[in-house]
């Protein structure tokens, strides 16, 4: 039983990270209908920037958590600037372009960011110094570290704040209006361009936090780390219903737990025929199954056939 609880905890930690990255995808998608493939690279830039900043702050002799916070506070504005620039330079000119053009642009931006990061930070893996306590605690017979608890809590708080922002503030209302119909929102006096810029900036700030969390938890950062993470997070966003904030969270957590349980129990489920090498097959299979029965994801609204 404690093994099962451990797997659920593993899934929750992993899922919190997925969810946080998935929010960035889903916000942009909700407003522009664009898969921002470069979002994973923003996460990577957040992680590497924070790491560089931390490297500079460590000699100052401050306590570990303060140093990490300092790194985070530097990474967030950097990522915000990157997100703003991406939208301005690459996506805005394509607002009225055919549907797939922005997708190709996103792939191009992703390649460019990765190569620039490789030039700036080099090809080697960077290690995150052990600044945060990583001693395991016992919880129902399973192990969890302070850092992992922190990750789950931070992710939950950020998501709650985001939901509040979108549903309770003026800006949030402008975002929802833009997502509904940009042309009408403009007529109602919403500065659509600003709302879109803000969405990118906000998503990038979340990406920075996610990047630091990934780097701290796995103690590793690398210029090519963003791609797989982005892909998983995107899958999570679709699973939950892309464009829906609650869906991204649910999708992220679910995907994390599915992966954990898949790796842990797929062998027993198939009588040893398949093993943890089919972990991703299992995750994608669940995704396909969900989409067959709910074509717009778990929490996606039922949309007309033509958007």
């Amino acid at each position: 039983m404690d093994i099962f609880i451990q797997q659920i905890i593993n899934g929750l930690v992993l899922g919190s990270i997925y969810a946080l990255v998935a929010l960035g995808y889903t916000m942009v998608y909700g407003i522009l209908g664009l898969i921002n493939f470069a979002h994973g690279e923003v996460v990577m830039i957040g992680a590497l920037t924070a790491l560089t900043a931390i490297g500079l702050l460590v000699p100052a002799g401050l306590p570990g958590p303060v140093v990490v916070l300092g790194g985070l506070l530097i990474a967030i504005p950097v990522c915000m600037a990157v997100g703003f620039a991406i939208e301005r330079i690459a996506y805005r000119p394509l607002r009225n372009a055919p549907r797939l053009a922005p997708l190709i642009t996103a792939i191009g931006v992703s390649i460019v960011l990765q190569q620039l990061a490789m030039m700036g930070w080099g090809r080697n893996y960077h290690t995150f110094p052990p600044l945060l306590p990583a001693t395991p605690h016992q919880l129902f017979g399973a192990a969890i570290t302070d850092l992992q608890m922190l990750i789950v809590v931070v992710a939950a708080v950020l998501m709650a704040a985001l939901v509040w922002l979108v549903t309770r503030t003026r800006l949030g209302r402008a975002m929802r209006a833009t997502a509904e119909n940009p042309a009408v929102a403009r007529l109602m006096g919403v500065d659509v361009d600003r709302v879109i810029s803000f969405t990118f900036v906000l998503g990038s700030a979340l990406a920075a936090v996610a990047g630091v969390m990934v780097a701290a938890n796995y103690s590793i950062a690398h210029y090519a780390m963003g791609f797989m993470l982005g892909l998983k997070a995107f899958t999570a966003a679709v699973l939950g219903g892309i464009g829906n904030l609650g869906g991204a969270m649910l999708g992220g957590l679910l995907l994390g737990i599915i992966e954990s349980l898949g790796a842990g129990y797929i062998g027993d489920l198939t009588g040893g025929f398949l093993g943890s090498n089919y972990q991703d097959v299992f995750a994608f299979f669940v995704l396909i199954l969900v989409l067959v029965f709910r074509p717009s994801g778990l929490m996606g609204e039922k949309v007309a056939e033509r958007a």
Binding site: F234, T235, F284, I288, V292
Partner: peptide, 23 residues
């Protein structure tokens, strides 16, 4: 299984299919 899916949902399912075959 993907007949009912719209644009980007289809994209992720086909992506998953490609990965499943590779795995």
């Amino acid at each position: 299984p993907t007949l009912k899916l719209r644009g980007d949902y289809l994209a992720i399912v086909t992506l998953g299919f490609g990965e499943i075959i590779r795995i």
